[in-house]
Design a protein around this nucleic acid. Structure first.
Lengths: 130, 130, 130, 130
DNA sequence: GTGGTCTAGACCACT
DNA sequence: GTGGTCTAGACCACT
């Protein structure tokens, strides 16, 4: 679950996504402090500014709350919010993909078949990883 | 089917996508000339250079061949190539979406449900448009 | 030996090349008239202006001479000139290719091997055609 | 190894070719950052957009990967890819030259002799330069 | 008129 | 600071 600097997905988004996953998985529980910007930056070998942007996103989503001088803390209903957000994000991505396919002249059946394939492959490769 | 200058997708990519769709839909058939850079630029209210970038992409994909002084012409197997490319693109987008969802802790069932929803909505709204 | 409009080599150059070959092969002999611009344009399915440019090139090279109102006539030493020009052109192309290869870090042996291959293939395919 | 703005070869292609050569020569090694668009533009006295076009080509070939905000980085198997691409390009150029010569009525021997000459001259002049 | 290249300059996202 | 996109405008080769 490392960050991939070569991906076209911005690093700060990858970090935010990773933290969202950790929170909804219970790695960080309500009241827990997140690692400091600098610590996480070192750990992930990225610029502290990049971690900062990820943290800003999480705060905007209400997953964490900042306490001046103390750090970032996971908020009470964080896991639920994280899950909801993940669902929204995935829905958006899937909608974009579907719209792109249909507007290119593919049939709903073809798009569905393509999805089937994508899901099977991902599930298979995840089974291996986990 | 207009271009959206505020989308995160670059305008030249939107134009290329639009033309790819037109070609695979048979709007432009093998041997046909595409509208000239200047003409299309006026029509789409963008700079000719932007159209040029879209045309470059299509030529690289083998959909069209340029004849200096004459214009861009749709190549023989263009429709097939366009369709194959569209399928590849959609597959990529769907894979990204699925991977994103699973890595965020969603279940395969949830992702599938989300896809179901996205497809239904898109098909419905397309039915209205067409 | 038709003109290929999809080639990146300008059509007028292809026509000039074709005529040079015909002249050095004796299809047109000293004193013969070349087909008129319009006739050749129709025959080759190109714009008369394009034939015009090809004829200008041949005239500049001394292969043909124009007689106002009569047409273009193959000059006395045309075959020799055509052959010399062809040699010069090929030499230029080969030099460009070699220079490109060496400057890209390929060894002389590799370039030579590549040439060997190109020659064998061309000779083989020409044998089939002729 | 400077850029020639008067050549018929587009400047951006010359730059790409130059970088390809540098990479396959080991001037830039896997993981290295290429000079930034702005820096290289100043160095080569061209517009940054022109460098950008060269960089786009290299990225499309898989020689480098862009990291937004950080720069362009030479990819792992870049040297191999660069070499393969160079070989392909040279093969294409040599094939064109050979075909041109044979179709102009030259014999295989003459074309070969011309190549011999071109190679000798280039090797000689390169020896002087290096 | 048509495609292709280049410059100058602006603006944006990301680090 | 670094890459990516876009505009406006110029110039060139080819038909």
């Amino acid at each position: 679950m490392a960050i991939n600097p070569n991906s076209h997905v911005p690093v700060f988004r990858q970090i935010a996504h990773h933290l969202r996953a950790s929170i909804s998985a219970g790695v960080y529980r309500p009241g827990d402090a997140l690692p400091s910007q600098r610590v996480l930056a070192v750990e992930m070998v990225v610029n502290p500014n990049t971690v900062q942007r990820a943290y800003e996103a999480l705060e905007r989503e209400g997953l964490v709350t900042a306490r001046r001088g103390l750090g970032l803390f996971v908020s009470e209903r964080a896991a639920d919010i994280a899950r909801a957000n993940s669902l929204a994000v995935v829905g958006e991505l899937l909608s974009d993909a579907v719209r792109s396919g249909l507007s290119a002249g593919l049939t709903a059946q073809e798009v569905q078949e393509s999805f089937r394939l994508a899901l099977d492959q991902s599930v298979a490769s995840q089974g291996r990883t986990t």
